[in-house]
């Protein structure tokens, strides 16, 4: 265990990030759309919590350009993809999950190495991706792109201008 002072600092930090997550959930749950910038900030807080849990088992790289940050997306779309990646794949220091969040002109791309768990929790209803897909269809009449290769799982969210 770290020094009491450092430990306390860590706990404050953790609670701060948890409250960010809750504030965002309360603020935006009624919204149809949210700025990519805000969703990113929220996702970073969520990733902080996951990193505390998985430690070196979860490796994340985020690289989103300024232009894309100003666009919008349905709230919780990005977070849901992160949650899915962690839920379906092995996340352990021995076999880390590498998660990349990047962008190009057309898409926000969430990509992770594919190392599926042997068994899934009972509550896996596969509703996450379906929900995102339907919201993009209804709100923007756009299709999200899902790609599965032998080694990677990739979801592309259209950048909405």
């Amino acid at each position: 265990m770290p020094e009491p002072y450092l430990f306390l600092k860590k706990v404050k930090e953790y609670i701060g990030e948890v409250s960010n997550v809750y504030r965002y959930l309360l603020q935006y749950k009624e919204n149809d759309m949210v700025a990519v910038e805000d969703e990113l900030k929220f996702t970073e807080s969520y990733l902080y919590i996951l990193s505390e849990r998985f430690e070196s088992g979860l490796q994340v790289e985020i690289s989103i350009g300024e232009r894309t940050r100003k666009t919008s997306l349905p709230p919780l779309a990005l977070q849901t993809l992160v949650e899915n990646a962690v839920k379906h794949n092995i996340v352990s220091p021995a076999r880390p999950l590498y998660l990349e969040i990047t962008d190009n002109d057309e898409f926000i791309v969430v990509r992770n190495n594919l190392q599926l768990k042997h068994s899934l929790p009972n509550d896996s209803s596969q509703s996450g991706l379906k929900n995102i897909h339907e919201r993009y269809g209804l709100l923007a009449n756009k299709e999200i792109v899902i790609e599965k290769t032998a080694t990677h799982f990739i979801v592309k969210l259209p950048v909405l201008v």
């Binding site: 352990s92 768990k117 042997h118 068994s119 899934l120």
Partner: peptide, 8 residues
């Protein structure tokens, strides 16, 4: 567990 349910 990281790779599934421990019942396995």
């Amino acid at each position: 567990l990281s790779d599934g349910l421990s019942f396995e």
